[in-house]
Computed example of a mutant assay.
Amino acid sequence: MSNTKLIIEERAANIGNFMVGRLLPFRQKRMVGPFIFIDHMGPACLSDSENLDIAMHPHIGLSTLTYLFEGAIMHRDSLGTEVEIKPGAVNWMTAGKGVVHTERTPEYLRHSKKMLHGLQIWVALPKADEQCDPSFTHVSADEVPSWEDNNVHFKLIAGKAFGKQSPVPVYSPLYFIEIKSSETKTISIGEHLFGESALYILEGSIKSDGYTYETKQLLVAKDSTLCAFEIEANSTIYIFGGNAFPEERFIEWNFVASDKALIAKAKNDWKADKFPKVINETVRIPLPTPKRFGG
């Protein structure tokens, strides 16, 4: 594929008792535009005794984007937010100078079999906004811009593209696009993209320049404006990217910053229990042994 700079295979990672597929960061590609971290959760069939239970943990310097295909997650944070996210909706939490949250199976599902499948994404903040006040926005599924073109279904989950704008309050020029097709179609959308760009295949496959790319592959483009491919029938893909930052970003545990001193302070503050609390939550995830994501 002449426009493919890098092909990243989804790698297994473990978050507690839940397996995810890690896409970013990768040793040869730490970010795509402002996108710095992407996990593919599931699909997982949880028994009546298995639940998602991610206790209190902190973030700085980023916005989290949670987008589900199946299942439900109850989000609670130190801002006082308590929101259940369901398929097609968007949870957008901006950590800024510091926020704490939990992610759990909703109470009404905890004693029954359930599915969980979705994407967890971190978007780094511009340097001027890294220490902004934290905030939270929930965008319902019917608020996400969606349209059809030549029997191909598009959703603009976040950012700007195709002359449309998602209501998700992003901090820098970016796009996160879902494309689904029940038929084999040729798609050329490079004129709508900018900056760095990557394509993730959730289901099905695509073809370009005689090559076939399949499920769980992430393709990083050399030039986003040359994005053209054939999507196979019954395929779902995600295209994301945007303008890269002029400064390097560092990532350690749940912290992202352009200055390592901000990460060091966040680590010390978490160990000293100086971050804000989540109401009705008592369990904190301890700071792990130093380890950087990726590779």
Rank of each mutant, 00 (worst) to 15 (best):
G163K: 08
H192F: 13
I15D: 10
V152M: 09
I189L: 10
E82C: 15
F245C: 06
R284C: 11
I121D: 07
Y171M: 14
D269W: 05
S258D: 10
H117G: 00
G71C: 10
F136A: 02
R27I: 10
R284M: 01
D269N: 10
P25H: 01
P173C: 08
P25S: 03
K265T: 13
W253I: 03
D133I: 11
I60L: 00
G80A: 05
K274C: 04
D223H: 05
V168S: 06
F154Q: 04
A264S: 14
K222V: 00
S112A: 08
T186F: 13
F194T: 02
D209A: 13
C227Q: 14
A272S: 12
L262I: 05
G210P: 07
F245Q: 01
R22V: 05
A72T: 02
I239P: 04
I251N: 12
I7V: 15
E50F: 08
I179Y: 07
P288T: 05
C45G: 12
H101K: 01
E232Y: 04
E82M: 14
E130R: 08
G210Y: 09
R11E: 07
H40G: 06
K155E: 14
I60F: 04
A124V: 12
N254E: 13
T236D: 00
D133P: 00
A198F: 08
E252C: 00
L119W: 10
T102E: 00
E252L: 11
T102D: 03
G195C: 07
N51Y: 04
A124K: 11
E178R: 14
I8A: 02
T94N: 08
H192Y: 15
Y171L: 14
G16L: 09
E130G: 04
A272H: 11
S181L: 14
L199K: 07
D53N: 15
L79D: 12
A266F: 03
H59L: 05
S47I: 00
D223P: 01
Q217V: 06
E84N: 12
T236P: 01
A12W: 09
F255W: 13
Q120L: 05
K265C: 00
R11P: 01
N151T: 14
R249P: 00
R284E: 13
F275G: 06
G295A: 12
L202I: 09
L193T: 09
A141H: 05
P173L: 06
N150H: 14
K277D: 13
L287G: 09
S47K: 13
A244G: 08
P276G: 07
K29C: 15
G88Y: 07
Q131S: 15
K113Q: 14
T4A: 09
F35H: 02
V123H: 03
P43Y: 02
S258C: 11
L65V: 14
Q217G: 03
S188F: 00
S235H: 03
H192P: 03
K114Y: 07
A12V: 08
A221T: 12
